[in-house]
Design a protein around this nucleic acid. Structure first.
Lengths: 189, 189
DNA sequence: AGGCCCATGTAATCTGTTACATGATTCC
DNA sequence: GGAATCATGTAACAGATTACATGGGCCT
């Protein structure tokens, strides 16, 4: 009852096929939700059955045919109902955090390596967000765009994604450095 | 295969009962993982069966008896194995983000209200984190504690939790304000 | 007596992941 | 001919949530 609304929200701007949605919801592009292709195909089926979206077959000659979806009026109503309803508490889950939590009782060196690697990944993701933000602004000044642009929702969620990724990045480097100095201290003892 | 390690990591510092773990993993205190009591009781059963933790009955007179758990050597080995293994991609899921994404097509006023309310919640959580951090430092200077303290893992994860919560808080207020000015603009048109 | 906190679960259901399966077209 | 991308699923399993169930002790 949750991926459903993420799909509806995504289909607001564009009609997409399951395959296209799968790329959007894949790690890297999905800045506000994540799902695997199988889940999306299943969800699209359910949404169409429920009449919240409508599918349209697109014949393609250069590649396999596909089915693209748009939100129906019933779907819009459902999205509005969801918006008004109470939000479930958000959550953030991360193996690396568990590893850092235990790091001074397990293997700090391994964790350090993973932290620096993760910092790199965060860096790429920030670059990706900057890219998306620039494309959404499309030449306009940010202030101007946010005040008068016709569609700012995707931009705003992207801004949050960028901020969080930045914090995560800095934290990784700080932790890695710290665990390094502690390792050094331990060697001296 | 994931909550498991979060539980093991938590039991490193202390022996806890299912009930106590439930409070730690509940919204508010769990800064790096979330789980419901039922899940924890089930997980503790599985972990004990697998020999990764050991339970001990504690007789109490003022309140119901309980069973507290500690990590076994096998459990430590498993935690080390997990630390060395590849981490699954982290994820963050949030209804409010979906709502903001769709806000300029649904009801911006409702979303604004939820954003300001959420900002308040974030504020309390930051205060809670500050509290926990202070208790962990226990009078020591942060630099000093991080360099020479015997157990910094929990402190580090808490620092990240605080940073992310702070970014989330600021973003909520910024979004709410922005949606407000846009609403104003729309009224003028 | 009623409400709250402590303490521990079972059962049913829903959601998400892993493994498997198929087939077209394009590029090298 | 083989790999990559496009395109869509099914089936089995693992993980998480919701609903339900129970009972003692403390405080007012």
């Amino acid at each position: 009852m949750a991926l459903q609304h993420a799909v509806l929200a995504t289909l607001l701007d564009h009609e997409y096929s399951g395959y296209q949605l799968a790329k959007i919801f894949d790690i890297g592009v999905a800045n506000f939700w994540h799902a695997l292709p199988q889940q999306l195909y299943a969800e699209l089926g359910k949404l169409e059955q429920a009449g919240l979206i409508r599918g349209r077959r697109v014949i393609q000659h250069d590649r396999p045919n596909k089915r693209v979806y748009t939100v129906t009026e019933l779907g819009m109503a459902e999205l509005e109902r969801f918006t008004a309803a109470e939000a479930k508490p958000s959550f953030f889950r991360d193996d690396l955090l568990v590893k850092v939590y235990a790091a001074d009782r397990t293997d700090a060196v391994t964790v350090m390596a993973q932290l620096t690697e993760r910092a790199e990944q965060a860096k790429s993701k920030i670059a990706l967000f900057d890219d998306i933000l620039m494309r959404l602004r499309d030449g306009r000044d940010e202030q101007e765009f946010l005040r008068h642009g016709s569609r700012v929702g995707p931009y705003l969620t992207c801004l949050l994604g960028r901020s969080l990724e930045k914090e995560y990045h800095d934290w990784c480097l700080r932790c890695a450095e710290l665990l390094g100095t502690r390792e050094g201290v331990r060697d001296d003892a």
